[in-house]
Amino acid sequence: MNKDMLIRLLALNLGIAAANIAVFSSGLLAVDLFGSALEKAFGSAFLVLSGSGLVYGNYKLLSEPEKAIPIGAKSTKEDYVEALNEHRGLETFERNIDLLLDQIERLQKKNKTIRDILLQIFNASEISYQKFDAVIAEVENIFFKNIRSIINKLNAFDEDDYNFIKKQRNSGAFSEEIMEEKFNVYNEYIRFVKEATEDNEQILLKLDKLLLEISGLNCIESGELEQMAGMIEIDNLIKQAKYYKD
């Protein structure tokens, strides 16, 4: 349940409670259920209406489908984690989502370790460190673009329909041609999520290789950074990502 839903539920229940206090409190309207016939009628009607509003309002809020969390270029790590958690109910992608959440944590940890090691060699104001930091930021950008694409696919995936056609596969209710086309569509969703998840694992592997290289260095001369095997792999990754974007 997201924060917006909790706020709406809290507002509804507190509003109804406040209305009842205002009607029956001795310091306010002071309606007495055991008073005059008019007070009894009004008080009873108000209790029925507020009770109905409480039950119906909570039911409507709790039963309405949750809106997908919008993910854009300026989204934070927390936004991506929350958006992925919103899809934990998709059994088809349950393992993928767990892996993606784990990948996000590992990415943050690796990049922090890389930056910490570099700060032992460079000052944060040095051009070499700033260049390296910009490269790491670009790698993060590519990584989260993959996550964003996956979330878009998860938003579009209709698991109820997918489960329906799986049950109807051998029933003869639809022609083999239609069933094959429908399965091809859903298999494309599954293939995309799997491959994008593997792409992110490749990014983490490249960071591991780079981390292995720089962790054994006490100093790096000017120009040596760009010639390191790990940096060359990451630079190629960035160029490839820009190529596909163009």
Rank of each mutant, 00 (worst) to 15 (best):
I142T: 05
Y56M: 11
K167A: 14
A134M: 12
N20W: 05
V139M: 00
S63G: 00
H87Q: 08
D235L: 01
A196G: 03
F183N: 11
A173W: 02
L210Y: 02
A41I: 13
E86A: 13
G27A: 07
V55L: 15
K206V: 00
Q120T: 14
I203G: 00
F183Y: 14
L6F: 08
C219Y: 08
Y59F: 15
F24S: 06
I69L: 15
Y80M: 13
K145Q: 13
L6V: 09
F183A: 04
K109C: 02
S149N: 15
N187C: 04
L10Y: 08
K245Y: 10
F46N: 09
F93D: 04
A73R: 13
A17D: 04
F192L: 14
V48S: 09
I203S: 01
S63P: 01
I69N: 06
Y186D: 11
E198W: 04
K112D: 11
K239D: 13
K182N: 12
F24H: 08
K145R: 15
E105F: 11
N155T: 07
T113I: 14
I238T: 03
G57F: 09
I104N: 06
F144A: 05
E140G: 14
D199F: 10
L154D: 10
V31K: 03
N187Y: 09
N141S: 14
V135H: 01
N58T: 13
L14G: 06
D158I: 08
A17Q: 07
V23D: 02
E198P: 00
A83S: 12
V81S: 09
V55S: 08
N163P: 00
R191H: 10
N58V: 12
L9V: 08
F122T: 03
G15K: 04
E177Y: 10
G216P: 00
Q103H: 15
R148D: 12
K209N: 11
L49Q: 05
V81E: 14
R88N: 11
V23S: 07
T76Y: 05
N111F: 00
L107N: 13
I21L: 14
Q103L: 11
I150E: 11
E105W: 05
N13W: 01
K3L: 15
Y162A: 08
T76N: 09
Y56R: 04
A156W: 07
N155I: 10
Q130R: 14
M228F: 10
K67G: 01
I104E: 10
S26N: 12
I238R: 01
I214V: 15
A19C: 12
S36Y: 05
D133M: 02
G27F: 10
R148K: 15
N152R: 13
K109Y: 08
L107W: 07
V23R: 03
I7P: 00
K167W: 04
F183R: 08
F34V: 05
I190Y: 02
M1E: 10
I203P: 01
A19T: 14
F164S: 07
Y162Q: 06
I214A: 03
G223M: 04
S128V: 09
Y162H: 12
S50I: 07
L205R: 05
E195P: 01
D4Y: 11
D116C: 02
K182E: 15
D199L: 10
A19R: 03
A73C: 00
A17R: 03
A37D: 12
S215G: 04
